[in-house]
Simulated scan of single mutants.
Amino acid sequence: MDDMGDVDERDDSYCETPAVTEAPGGPPYAACVLCQEPTEYPESTKGITLCPVCEWREAERTACSG
């Protein structure tokens, strides 16, 4: 037997998706061009702004498949 502890006591909190909220007192955030959720970028950011979820999906879509 190893001394690693019980398997049932795992911490799966890293699997939970945090809610996207606007930081109080922060700059006005740009809206995602795909889903209109707030992004991590200020409104003054040039170019296409994506929220973290859409950025992840775009990266998956454009990743090399082979």
Rank of each mutant, 00 (worst) to 15 (best):
Thr39Ala: 05
Gly5Tyr: 02
Thr39Tyr: 05
Pro52Thr: 01
Thr39Ser: 04
Pro42Ile: 03
Ser65Phe: 04
Val33Asp: 14
Met1His: 13
Cys54Pro: 08
Val7Leu: 14
Pro24Met: 04
Asp8Leu: 15
Ser44Ile: 11
Thr17Gln: 14
Gln36Tyr: 03
Glu55Gly: 00
Pro27Asn: 09
Asp8Asn: 14
Ala63Met: 06
Cys15Gly: 04
Ala30Gly: 00
Pro52Cys: 09
Val33Thr: 13
Tyr41His: 10
Asp2Gly: 08
Gly47Glu: 10
Ala63Phe: 01
Thr17Gly: 10
Cys64Glu: 06
Asp3Thr: 07
Val20Pro: 03
Cys35Arg: 02
Gly5Asn: 12
Ala23Glu: 08
Cys35Trp: 05
Pro28Arg: 09
Ser13Ile: 01
Pro27Phe: 07
Ser65Thr: 15
Cys15Ser: 06
Glu9His: 03
Thr45Val: 09
Ser13Pro: 09
Ser44Trp: 02
Val7Met: 14
Glu40Val: 08
Ala59Val: 04
Tyr14Arg: 03
Gln36Arg: 12
Asp6Gln: 09
Gly25Cys: 01
Gly47Trp: 02
Glu60Ala: 11
Pro42Glu: 08
Tyr14Val: 00
Glu58Ser: 01
Cys32Lys: 03
Glu9Phe: 01
Pro52Val: 12
Pro52Arg: 14
Glu22Phe: 06
Glu37Arg: 11
Pro28Lys: 10
Cys35Leu: 03
Glu40Met: 13
Cys64Met: 00
Tyr29Trp: 13
Pro27His: 13
Asp2Trp: 12
Gly5Pro: 00
Val20Asn: 03
Val20Arg: 10
Arg61Gln: 13
Thr45Lys: 04
Cys64Ala: 08
Thr17Tyr: 05
Ala31Asp: 15
Glu40Ala: 13
